[in-house]
Amino acid sequence: MSSSATHRGAAVVEVTDLHKSFGSNHVLRGLDATIRQGEVVCVIGPSGSGKSTFLRCINLLEQPTSGSIKVGGEEVTDPDCDIDAIRRNMGMVFQQFNLFPHLSVLDNCTVAQTTVLKRGKEEAETKARDNLEKVGLSDKADAYPAQLSGGQQQRVAIARALSMDPKLMLFDEPTSALDPELVGDVLSVMRRLATEGMTMFVVTHEMAFAREVADRVIFMDGGSIVEEGVPSQVIGSPTEERTRVFLQRVLDPTHVDPGAEDEAHAERHRAAAAAAGSTPGVPLDPQR
């Protein structure tokens, strides 16, 4: 594993020898990773390599089989740790948005603030509107999720997570369920978050995004981290054969042009990925 990552701040997440099995299916086979304050870390890798499982272990949506996960210095696998308190500091964005369909957009963004953080209604609504503004949806506050496009729903999901003032944002393939023309809006919101210094851990198949925004890229295959480093190295000139094979398949196989980063190429890569039947990747966000 390369250690060329920029070490900007304190470790927000420290994963040591993480194993996860579903029955006899050994999905994660000893992962080690550190996410630092302000970093954007992207995880890429083929379908079924365990990217989502890795991400979901960090906020304990999956219970690790063994190993250690420290978030802000606290061991989340410790039965004595208050996982709800840790999750409050960690936003999660899902591939399928998972907005609350019975609540308006505004209420989606306030319900956890008022029930969990005990914020007053007014304070919560102000915070929610600020974040809706940030994702460009201040005019949709009173709409219901079903009335929004996928891209709009995903941006609401980001606003909902941001409304808890998280220190870290987890994204599990946030653009994979979107029509191609809606992907750009979500990515630009994420790009802006990264610019503002948010620590982000992103599973993604958006190679152009990873290349441009990530401080570090982790390539996973078969439940292990195969290669890790700055994007120009992992995506630009991978040292591992498996990484190369994967990238060739995801990037346009008839059009090997690893330097291209413009939107047109990104579009083609997405189409190629979809055509290859590969599952969408979860983008990794670097920590502040």
């Binding site: 949506l61 999660m92 609350f100 956890a112």
Partner: peptide, 12 residues
């Protein structure tokens, strides 16, 4: 996904 979203927001 609904319970996952709720729990990941820190709701007990």
């Amino acid at each position: 996904g609904q319970i996952e979203a709720a729990r990941s927001l820190g709701m007990p």
